[in-house]
């Protein structure tokens, strides 16, 4: 495959296009102007993941911008996937920021609706929601492929992006979830990362629907994994995080070990087991490891899962 055939030519796109099992990580920018936090997280993940998601005001809490942080990550050896939510920008701001990200050398973008403002630290702010995630995917695809702004006007140089989306296989109505993925494929998504998976049987059921529609051949599916540090996190996600499905046996397993080094080790072990099981599912093209504020666990998990060294692509 020559470089010109790639849509954006990112490391992530090349690895997935060549059919290699991809590993992506996640990095949340800090709630201050301290850019060194991103530097450190990027250095920790460099060489262990193919690209790293840079969250965009996650849970509606203000942080360093995803594009600025993505640039920092890139300078510290990790390819960024900048996240962009529809909550904080209208279509002008989104297009402007995407053009800017392209000029900085950032070429992976994950298109999201975004958590609602009521969850964050500025609940009185005006939620933009000019577009939804599907509109954003389509707008970005048209910018890239048709050199057109959302309004239809043409541009001289198109921004090159490998376009990602997220999907929650555990959201309701369950029967609509595979259809929603299809909608995102139609809009132009190239890869998809799932919400954290704890309920593997339910994920397998969802993947059966995805395969029945042949969707796994039209989009690269990365299964989401969140290593648990202890039973507290498991219970929190089970009870308080919207759209999360954490089975009791996972909670019980984490409850069975002492909090601290033992539970950390168990959490990593569980993550490795899950990665191995997910990798066996037909249509799963990689894993997306979301170690929230526990990035240092990622190298151990990736190594124990037998996913090192990470492939290099020309």
């Amino acid at each position: 495959m020559t470089a010109t055939e790639y849509k954006a030519g990112t490391n992530l796109e090349k690895i997935l296009s060549e059919g290699k099992f991809a590993v992506t990580g996640e990095c949340g920018p800090p709630k201050s102007a301290d850019g060194s936090v991103i530097e450190n997280k990027a250095k920790m993940l460099a060489g262990y993941v193919d690209a790293v998601n840079i969250t965009d005001n996650q849970t509606a809490v203000v942080r360093i911008s995803s594009i600025a942080s993505g640039y920092t990550a890139m300078q510290n050896g990790v390819e960024p996937i900048v996240q962009m939510t529809c909550r904080d920008r209208n279509r002008l701001a989104m297009q402007a920021d995407l053009l800017g990200a392209h000029t900085l050398g950032i070429h992976n973008c994950l298109c999201l609706t975004g958590d609602h403002l009521s969850f964050g630290n500025h609940p009185e702010a005006r939620g933009v929601h000019d577009l939804d995630a599907i509109n954003l995917i389509e707008m970005l695809r048209r910018m890239r492929d048709e050199k057109k702004f959302d309004c239809g006007e043409e541009m001289d140089v198109a921004p090159k992006f490998y376009i990602g989306c997220a999907e929650n296989p555990f959201g309701d109505p369950f029967e609509f979830r595979a259809i929603r993925l299809k909608k995102k494929i139609l809009a132009g998504a190239d890869f998809m990362q799932t919400q954290c998976i704890f309920n593997i049987p339910k994920f397998k059921t969802w993947m059966e629907e995805v395969r029945a529609e042949g969707l796994h051949q039209e989009i690269k599916i990365l299964a989401g994994i969140t290593p648990l540090k202890g039973v507290g996190g498991a219970r929190y996600m089970k009870n308080f995080v919207p759209g999360m499905d954490v089975p009791d046996e996972i909670v019980d397993r984490m409850a069975g070990v002492e909090k601290g080094p033992a539970s950390h080790a168990e959490g990593k072990k569980l993550a490795v087991e899950m990665i191995k099981e997910l990798a066996e599912i037909e249509g799963v093209a990689g894993v997306h490891i979301m170690a929230v504020e526990w990035e240092e666990a990622v190298p151990d998990i990736v190594e124990a899962a037998g996913l090192l060294p990470r492939p290099t692509v020309a």
Partner: peptide, 15 residues
């Protein structure tokens, strides 16, 4: 809550 034109988002749970 998010005025989606193409919903539901991933936060829909049990209706």
């Amino acid at each position: 809550s998010k005025s989606l034109m193409n919903g539901p988002c991933g936060g829909s749970h049990d209706g």
